[in-house]
Structure formats: structure tokens, C-alpha cells
């Protein structure tokens, strides 16, 4: 998965989970949960959406890597190569 694909996937998934959240408002380095007011259920729904789209199972211990937009993009692009 390329960087752009990962970014687009996060955007689409996030829109499904929280249509009222604005991804453009997220500053680099800011955590998604804080910037977008995601509660734990929103976040779990986001991770579920990502798992379903990529076909990879994301364990709970990897959640911290997904906390920022950049972190999530890196994580997703690395999924195939690591595996």
C-alpha cells in the first residue's frame, strides 16, 4: 500500500465512523483521538474498518502506533512488507 492509498483509506474509514469529524483540521503530530474527539468506541470502529479493508488483524498492543495520522499511514504502508 502506498502512502497516498493509506491516507485515502484512513480518510474514507474515518468518514464512515465519524462523518462529523474533519480530518483536515488535524495538525501533524496531533493525536487523532484528541484532534477529532474520538472516543474509545469511535477508535475501535476506525481500527475495525481498517482491518476489514486491509485484511490484516491489528492487535490491541499496536493501537499506540495508530494514534497520529502519520503513525497510522506508516503502520498501514508497512503492513504488507513486514508480513
Amino acid at each position: 500500500m502506498t502512502d497516498d492509498e493509506a491516507r485515502a483509506l484512513i480518510r474514507t474509514t474515518l468518514h464512515q465512523v465519524a462523518p462529523d469529524a474533519d480530518l483536515d483540521a488535524v495538525e501533524p503530530g496531533e493525536t487523532l483521538q484528541e484532534a477529532l474527539d474520538l472516543d474509545s468506541i469511535d477508535f475501535l470502529n476506525l481500527v475495525t474498518g481498517l482491518c476489514e479493508s486491509t485484511g490484516f488483524e491489528i492487535p490491541e498492543r499496536d493501537y499506540p502506533q495508530l494514534s497520529t495520522l502519520e503513525g497510522a499511514v506508516d503502520y498501514l504502508t508497512g503492513l504488507g512488507s513486514a508480513g
Binding site: D39, S40, I41, L44, V47, T48, C51, E52, E57, I58, P59, E60
Partner: peptide, 17 residues
Amino acid sequence: LERANLERPVTSRLVLP
């Protein structure tokens, strides 16, 4: 919760709320 979620796929994980 942590222990329970280890065995669960993402679709059936639990959260504290």
C-alpha cells in the same frame, strides 16, 4: 479487558465503557 481482547478479533473487542 486486555486479556479478553488478546483472544478476540478486532470486530469483537471490548472497551471499558
